[in-house]
Write a protein that binds this DNA or RNA. Structure first.
Lengths: 204, 204
DNA sequence: AGGGTTATTTACCGATAAGTACATATATCT
DNA sequence: AGATATATGTACTTATCGGTAAATAACCCT
């Protein structure tokens, strides 16, 4: 069964692949942002008409939120998998190098849709902006919790302020999203990642 | 004479203060982004009608670019003044602490309009997006040149890669803009600034 | 084959977008 | 005072915005 579709066995079958269409929608939102994306942009990229879009995904806002869910659950996502690494240093290493690789990947828009999808926006986009802020803050919180565990595990010095460390790392990651939008390539982002890691506290 | 107005001595005098109106426009663009800002948003905030706006500032795009010029030349701007500090470390210190103070200042929208004014945007905003990218890249280049000078001055180690150092610092600054949008306060940003400074190379 | 159900197509809705024509108001210059 | 020049307010234009009504098409089940 597909990740997003839930096909009934009655009625006319859907003529398009919902997952593929959602991928296309994600790419448009990623490149143009919520305010900068029109329904025409979406239907054109997804290869469907407006009523099909509304029937399948609700409306523009719900489509955006589903696209963000897809973004965070993709195989090439780097944030959540990095949390599983055995030490705090390796968590940071995987996040930073994953970000360097992913954010400048020319197979999709540059940067991170969670950062740039609705950063400054109209009042019509206020709720999706809030949703993205929540995602970013929750990511930071998850990283702090992981660093707390690392302190217990002994792979972070006991006097480490894990909240500041998590915020610092997220600041660099979010800054890398801007850098990718500036045109920085993976190698340039990797240098930033390396510099950040040099400052990273290690046990012992 | 005002920074932006150039009043002729014939004809009906302008009934509003161009500088004050431009400040208001800046604030709207800063909060809502280029795509998220409508002409009605602007005229309402500026307290003028559309024909006055067009006569005084050209069009939406030119108004935006003039607002960005104002932003970068304001007294509370922290980037260019920091370049004048005597050592590389003090340059970084002033930039980071200035950013921490300014970006979370509740007297204006959070973050940095050069970062968030048109990050992901419609095709209609492509040219202002390019203009903002150019500003960010030029800022990075200016910082690199300043660090090259610091190397000559002997307040950076001779093996310092000034390009990477400048990019790293800009990455943190741009990340701080996102953090400010996330709701981080000045003190939290200051902690990130302090952590960044700890990793900063110092001569001797 | 026919009924029930869902998807697609076309054409449309009211609202709002950016931008402007035009008449009027207010100044200076002679 | 009158001519000239610029600003303002009202009302408008064309295009596009997000979203939908209604007719038709394609499927499953009996």
């Amino acid at each position: 069964m597909s990740a997003v579709s839930c096909t009934p066995n009655v009625g006319r079958p859907r003529a398009f692949d919902m997952d593929a269409a959602l991928e296309k929608a994600l790419e448009v939102f990623w490149r143009k942002g919520y305010d900068g994306t029109s329904l025409s942009d979406l239907t054109e990229a997804m290869g469907i008409n407006k009523p099909s879009l509304y029937a399948a995904f609700g409306n523009k806002e719900q489509l955006f939120l589903k696209a963000i869910e897809l973004y965070e659950s993709r195989p090439c996502s780097f944030f959540l998998p990095a949390l599983e690494k055995p030490t705090a240093y390796q968590v940071a290493e995987h996040m930073l190098h994953g970000a360097a690789m992913n954010m400048a990947d020319s197979n999709h828009p540059q940067g991170c849709v969670v950062v740039q999808g609705a950063l400054s926006c109209s009042e019509a986009a206020a709720s999706v902006k809030e949703a993205l802020i929540n995602r970013r803050v929750e990511g930071e919180q998850k990283l702090k919790v992981r660093f707390d565990q690392a302190k217990t595990d002994g792979d972070l010095p006991p006097d480490t302020d894990t909240g500041v460390l998590a915020r610092y790392l997220l600041t660099v990651l979010q800054g890398m999203a801007i850098q990718a939008n500036n045109g920085a390539c993976s190698e340039q982002l990797r240098q930033v990642a390396q510099m950040t890691l040099q400052a990273f506290p290690r046990a012992g």
